[in-house]
């Protein structure tokens, strides 16, 4: 089966950061919003079409996976996305240090977080008013 991917279209992004909010609420910690796993960077000079979206690309040969000593990062066979198996994570934050793209995010005293495409139904995509994100 063809795996879907989270596609980003930064030229459409308005840097409204709805995606970040959606992500936070989709990954709550103790009922409160968690750290967003996606990041929208507004262009410094405010130019339309020059905003940026940074989110995990679910790399083939992922640095986070090879850095993790606890075998806590796994690829979900259904979505093809790498997700964190919290029961195995020892919170050493090696993955955070290893990901060269800054897509593995630390959360103080918590498990690090990364995009898991919400198990196949990414919240960010639904909340992006500009259609800058597509899951296909």
């Amino acid at each position: 089966m063809e795996k879907k991917l989270l596609h980003v279209y930064p030229q459409r992004c308005t840097a409204c950061r709805n995606c970040e909010i959606a992500c936070s609420f989709a990954h709550p910690i103790d009922g409160k919003a968690g750290v967003a796993r996606i990041k929208a960077f507004g262009d410094k000079e405010g130019r339309v079409g020059h905003n940026q979206i940074v989110v995990c690309m679910q790399c083939e040969d992922a640095a986070c996976v090879s850095a993790c000593p606890a075998n806590a990062l796994w690829r979900n066979p259904d979505t093809g996305a790498i997700y964190l198996l919290e029961e195995r994570c020892i919170r050493c934050h090696s993955c955070v240090a290893a990901c060269p793209f800054g897509n593995m995010r630390p959360q103080a005293d918590e498990f690090p977080s990364k995009c898991d495409v919400c198990g196949g139904d990414p919240a960010c995509v639904k909340f992006c008013p500009a259609n800058a994100l597509e899951y296909k």
């Binding site: 990041k39 960077f41 940074v54 640095a63 850095a67 000593p69 290893a98 800054g102 897509n103």
Partner: peptide, 24 residues
Amino acid sequence: RTGMKVEEYFVCVKCKAAQTARTY
């Protein structure tokens, strides 16, 4: 364990993400 260079670890997440954005 990974073969990455030691220095590659010395960038914080925020800067790495910003760097990624710039690359894009």
